[in-house]
Amino acid sequence: MIRAMAALWLALLVAAPLAVIAAISLAVPDEGLPPFRLGAPLADNEAWPLLAADGFYAAALLRSLLLAAVTAGCCLLLSYPMALGLLRLPARLRPWVVGLILLPFAIGFVLRMAAWVGLLRDSGPINAALLALGLIAEPLPLLYGWSGLFLGMVHSYLIFALLPLYAALSARDPRLEEAAADLGASPAVVFFTVTLPASAAAAGAAFLLVFIPAAGEFVVPELLGPPEALLAGRAIWLEFFQSRDWPLAAAASLALLLVLVGPILLWQRLGRAP
């Protein structure tokens, strides 16, 4: 009974939307609302051939994967020492520092991006400070450039890497590291031979937990990124909201999903590992 109801929910709100996307990606655009016609001959479908032939979409997808990989890499590089630093704090202080890490996220994603938009603008405080110090002659194009985009992405996604890594590292047995240190290993050797191998699966999972959603990210590039560099999430958004080409939007989102199936399956495997 419970199982049937849960299965019905999943079928309706998780499986059905994906099936509908697949069906509409095979439809042809049509006048009227909704702007597509189902049941047209497959030969008439324009979305998939366009997607495959036009290098525009392949480039957008590739750019998105690159952005996601760099974002996830930066988050991981920052998360490792931060998580270890947290664990070196007195146990009494840790929940408070975790709270301090969570609080900036709690004000909401859009408001945090609003802060970055204001900070990175040509007339913003970062450029003003650099100009006043005489380090630059003209404002740096931070907003609507790649540097601003990466800052915003890492700021948005950091906890997705930090919290799982912190949980995994806090569950490790610190006696292993003590033993290695007692036997004469330097802190660097302890990290690379004990800590890192013991948490490799968690680190991989943390990387993917950032990489997968970041690959489809729409809001951060829209607010901070370079307008000419089209990304997958934005391409889907524009096809749907501006061109009103539903079959093409559906095909583009399925393409994004197909590329992410590998990372998603890997993440599920890593998540199950002890």
Binding site: P17, I21, E217, A250
Partner: peptide
């Protein structure tokens, strides 16, 4: 793990149909 744009688009299509 589904990208938000994919979930959003799929749910909207479903609701319209």
């Amino acid at each position: 793990v589904l990208p938000e744009v994919v979930t959003g688009l799929g749910l909207l299509f479903l609701f319209v149909l």
